[in-house]
Design a protein around this nucleic acid. Structure first.
Length: 193
DNA sequence: GAGAAGATCTCCT
DNA sequence: GGAGATCTTCTCA
């Protein structure tokens, strides 16, 4: 269980997005260890991407997107939900990858408790759901994923084979033409087909 | 300081 | 398939 190094994140956002598929998101909280396989992501850019928070430049909320890659960018939306992003690119180049869905691997009972449901398929198949299942909130905003012991991303122990599909992004009104959503084909935990 | 929209989820029909 | 929940953030006056 070794966290991915800084150089994994400080690259082109689309490359990082695609390569995050199949990786493990690891969350340690008091008394529990939660692990999920990343099965669906979306890439967000800067001034070239109207769908991105960073489209109009830096604001207090999106400043994390301008940092060097490897940090967590967590924001609150719709009055109810947190969304978890991984910052990409070099310092001062905005970019982030939204984690949209996970396949639960460890700590499933804790996730069920966090989500108040017994349906495994309903635990982490959406950006607002997986943050609740993994106990990720605004407190994790700005966390360094290459150094933290409580929240990080690592490679699977054995390499897995899968097909990657890409489509338009979901839930945004502008910038919908970009095919910047990636997911693992035939995985049951992907939020939408 | 006000108003509108939002990278969503759940419940209802 | 559709609307309501619910509150933060941004924009503009």
């Amino acid at each position: 269980m070794k966290a991915l190094p800084r150089r994994f994140y400080t690259r082109d956002t689309l490359t990082v997005a695609e390569e995050l598929l199949g990786k493990r998101l690891v969350r340690h909280t008091t008394g529990s260890k939660l692990v999920g396989k990343i099965v669906e992501v979306e890439a967000y850019g800067g001034s070239d991407d109207p769908g991105s928070h960073a489209y109009r430049g830096m604001t207090p909320r999106n400043r994390l997107m301008f940092r060097k890659g490897g940090f967590a960018y967590v924001y609150f939306t719709y009055g109810k939900h947190y969304c978890f992003n991984v910052v990409t690119e070099r310092q001062n180049v905005p970019g982030a990858v939204l984690i949209r869905a996970l396949e639960p691997l460890e700590g499933i009972e804790t996730m069920k408790k966090n989500r108040r449901t017994s349906n495994v398929l309903n635990l982490t198949d959406g950006p607002g759901k997986l943050t609740e299942a993994m106990n990720i909130t605004g407190k994790q905003n700005g966390l360094d994923l290459t150094r933290s012991k409580r929240l990080f991303i690592c490679k699977p122990e054995e390499k897995e084979k899968f097909e990657v599909a890409s489509t338009k992004r979901i839930g945004i009104r502008v910038g919908v033409n970009k095919p910047w959503r990636f997911y693992i084909e035939d995985n049951r935990f992907v939020s939408r087909k």
